[in-house]
Each structure stands twice: as structure tokens, then as C-alpha cells.
Simulated assay, not measured.
Amino acid sequence: MASKGGGFITAFIGAVLGSVLTIVAISQNLIPIGNMDIPNENTGNPTTSISIEGESMENVYKAVVQKSMPSVVGITTVTTVGDLFFGTRQASGVGTGVIVDERGYILTNSHVVNDGAANQVRVLFYDGTTQDAEVLWNEKALDLAVIKVDTSGLPVAELGNSDEVEVGDLAIAIGNPLGLDFERTVTQGIISGLNRSIQIEQNLVMDNLIQTDASINPGNSGGPLLNSRGQVIGINSAKVSTGEGLGFAIPINMAKPIVDQFIEKGEFQRVYVGIRGIDLEYYKQATGEDFAVEEGVYIVDIEPSGAAEAVGILEGDIIVELGSSTITNMSTLVRELYKYRPGDTATIKILRGTEEMEFELTF
């Protein structure tokens, strides 16, 4: 049996060695670097700047949390649901959100607000105060929503660039994993994968997701996935967590055009092709018909005076490409359309029989 003294000496040496390695890692810029603001404890607004660049000894995780935490909110909802045995009843839910504008705009998941069907939405702020919120916009296919509280001067999260994220990058998640009893729980890990696709429902696939091994559980939904500079690179979605150690986030660049419109105009106006469509895969299953392509959007109907009708697209055509992106189903078409604004133009490629055709759409 080893002596207690020997165990203490071993532990002491290990602690000293760990400290030395940490100092070396920081001095050699092996720990991620960036400039961060420390929020004022009373107001929540950034007042002091602290650098974790170069020779800084500040722990990167602590600095990221101090910068980001005031802009993370808890979200509680009440929804009326049907019950087979008891009729209608009130169901409560808990999620997380990120403040994206000081005037009260908050980004979260669509499923956090029950895809817009919640009767009541309340926001819990960093200082412990609560306030009712209104759902301004939500999109189930993106699992994103924007809600708003009637206040101003809120601490705003810094949005990063998810196109620059690489596998192996540091990742930090903040949220309420098991309800408000564990509010603002911080978990950390790395970016484990990019461009992941997950089947959510029979007719809904979420694409281009960021995969992380940072723990994400129900209640984390709508919270930020952060990089080493404290910038939001994704919105966590427990709805697409499918296994132990697997977490997924919606890239923040997918939400930026929507957030920008709300900040600039106070509203979001979505563009439309002017069609009613169905996944080609499901149309083939229902009809037994065979087509020259395996994936796409089968056009069931053309809306009068829409962009599609204006350029001569017909019922029965199959959309296979929009802009430079391949269209495999309705979910991908919806996501691509969020990149455009009213008045924009885009090239759309369709298959009519065996002939590929291109049209210039004006939204």
C-alpha cells in the first residue's frame, strides 16, 4: 500500500506540472485567443475590457462565459394541448434564448415556442427579472424563432461566422438543460463534425448542422453554441440530439439574414416561389411513377401571379436547383429561400420530363 505522504507528493508534482503546461500553452498561443468584454454585475452591460490574447493568464472558458452569459435568457411557455383521456390541458415548457438586439429581439428554436402555438411565453433575464414575450416569427423547417420583449438596453450577444467553423474548434454551450433549476448551465467540448443531416420527422430533415460533443439536453434548446472568442456560432437544438455525446446546433449564418431584417425593419418578409410542392421521394411512393431524378421538389400546383407562373414554370415540373444549391426536398428549398429578399433574382433549375430547364426568378 502506498503511503499517504507519497500520494500527496505525487499529487503535488502533478498539480505543479499541470500549471506549468497551462502557462506554456497560453504563452505559445495554444489556447484560443480573442478580446472579450466583462459585463458589469449590476447592469449586465459590458463595461470593462479584458484581453485573453498573447500572454494573458485568463482561462478561456471563464472569459467566454463572462462575456456571453448576460445575453442568454431562459424561456418558459404554456401551451394548450389535446389529451386523449382528459380533453384539453395546459402544458408547460422550458428552453433558452439569445438576445440579438438591445431593443428586445431574442433568437431561439421554433420548437421552444411550440412552433408558434404557445399561449404564453415568458423570458427570464440574467438579473432575475421576467417579462412576457411575443412570438414574431418562427419556421419549423429551420427550427428557429424570433421573440420580442417590450424593453431596451439589453446586453447583446456577438454573432460569429459559422462558415469559418472547423472540426476540432473549441465549443461552449450555455442553456437550461433540465429546466430553470439548472439555469445557465455551461458545457464545453469541441466541434465534432459539420454539415450533418438529421431526420426529425417523416417529412422533415434538418441539414448543414454543426455537431458537437458539448452536452446538450432538453432545455438547452435555443441557447448559444459559442467559439473561443465568445461569439455565437450556432443555436443549439436538443430536438435533433440523437445519441449519447452527440449534440447539434443550427449554424448562426442561417439565422443572420432573418435577425438582420428584424433589427433593420422590425419585421421579416419571406420570399416565395409561388408553388405548392412535395418531396419527390414521397410523390414517387404515393403514385408509383418513375422520374429521371431521385430527389427534388415535385410541383403540385402553381399559385396565380407568383414568381414561378411569371416565368413559365408548370405543374408537374421538378425543382432540382436554386441558385448554386441542389434542392433535394421541401426542407432544403425552404432553407434556401431564406437567403433571398423581396426584389432579389435567382436562377432556378427544373426538370420537365427528361429535359432540364433554367429560369430567372424575381421574388
Rank of each mutant, 00 (worst) to 15 (best):
A11Y: 08
A11M: 09
G14N: 10
A15E: 06
T22D: 03
I26W: 15
Q28L: 15
I31G: 05
T43H: 03
G44Y: 14
T47D: 02
I52F: 11
I52H: 14
M57E: 06
N59T: 14
K62I: 06
S71N: 13
V72M: 09
V73I: 10
V73G: 03
V81C: 05
G97L: 04
E102Q: 11
R103D: 06
Y105E: 05
V112M: 00
D115C: 05
G116M: 08
A118D: 10
N119L: 10
T130S: 10
L136K: 11
N138Y: 06
L144F: 04
K148F: 00
K148L: 00
K148I: 00
V156P: 14
L159F: 02
G160D: 00
D163Q: 07
E164Q: 10
G168N: 13
T187F: 02
G189T: 06
I190L: 07
L194V: 01
S197F: 05
N203T: 15
L204I: 06
D207A: 04
L209P: 03
T212Y: 00
S215R: 12
N217A: 01
Q231M: 05
F248N: 01
P257L: 01
F262V: 04
I263G: 07
G266E: 03
E267Y: 13
V271L: 05
I275K: 11
I275M: 08
R276V: 06
R276M: 11
Y283M: 06
K284V: 08
G288I: 03
G306E: 04
A310P: 01
I313L: 08
E321W: 15
T328I: 14
T328Y: 15
N329K: 14
N329E: 11
T332W: 08
T332V: 10
V334E: 11
E336N: 07
Y340T: 04
R341T: 14
R341Y: 03
G343K: 12
G343S: 00
R352E: 09
E355F: 03
E355V: 08
E356C: 05
M357P: 12
F359C: 04
